[in-house]
Amino acid sequence: MKFAVIGGTGLIGSQVVRNLNAAGHEAVPHSQSTGVDVISGQGLEEAVAGADAVVNLTNSPTFDEASPAFFRTSMDNLLAAAHKGGVGHFVILSIVGVDQVPELDYYRAKLLQEELLAAGPLPYSIVRATQFMEFMDAVLSWTADGDTVRLPATPIQPIAAKDVASEVTQVAAGAPLGGIRNIAGPEIFSLDELGRITLSRKGDKRTVVIDPTAGMFAAIKGDVLTDKNAHLAPTRYTDWLA
């Protein structure tokens, strides 16, 4: 099969391209660096021409109120190009619980992306993943203040990027789901606990304190970012840290 991987040079996309090619498929990465622009539409028709499936792993450059416009424009352009090119399967990566957090602009934007795909003209698959292990350093930096890191006790089920890429690869190479597959890491932590584990393993002496108002995850209510019934990935967080 031939795959056009849009956003194919990023954290997940580059691994999906590698996985698909290693499995004997032809996967071509596309991004701004290769002359493809999902907002202007430049290079899109050429990128998807002859592809059996499109895997869209592009992301908004911001997480604020500008993000819905990015996903609306990029999806409109990509769906039009893929439909014109006769693509038979369109895959996106989204977030577990994305429909449960209307307080966050970015989550509303990702839900909009899902809705545009589901209402579009192509057979599709949506892979929803829990929070990436690779993002934990960024999460810690958001609310760091001297020797203290403030974090809410939000339940988190971290998943390794390599496991996300593996699941996206499998879904992309299979028949369209016509729906959603949830994937998650094998363990659930509170975010403050995850912060303490991370700092301890790195030899970082800063103290984590619980602050229910701190950072983006303060808007999350309950355990909506976890899913015990998801397809569970194998990599545990402490093994990933090691």
Rank of each mutant, 00 (worst) to 15 (best):
P123V: 01
P68S: 12
G195H: 01
L140S: 11
W142C: 12
A129G: 13
L78A: 06
V209W: 04
G185W: 00
A230W: 11
P29T: 09
H83C: 08
V48A: 06
G97L: 08
S190V: 01
Y124M: 09
G195Y: 00
Y106E: 07
K84M: 06
G215F: 00
S166D: 13
G178M: 06
H83D: 15
D105V: 09
G179L: 08
P152I: 05
Q157G: 05
E187W: 04
W240S: 12
P234T: 11
A82H: 03
L104G: 07
I156T: 10
D137N: 14
T130K: 01
E193F: 11
D147Q: 10
N56E: 10
R18K: 13
Y124F: 15
A165V: 07
D145T: 09
I183G: 03
T238Y: 00
N77S: 10
L122H: 12
K2G: 04
D204C: 07
P176S: 13
H231E: 12
S60L: 10
T148I: 15
I6H: 01
G215I: 05
D64M: 10
Q131H: 14
M136V: 15
V139C: 08
H231Q: 12
T58A: 08
Q32I: 11
L191Q: 10
P121E: 12
Y106T: 13
L57R: 07
F63M: 15
K162H: 13
T58F: 03
H231D: 12
D227N: 14
V127F: 09
D192F: 04
G13W: 09
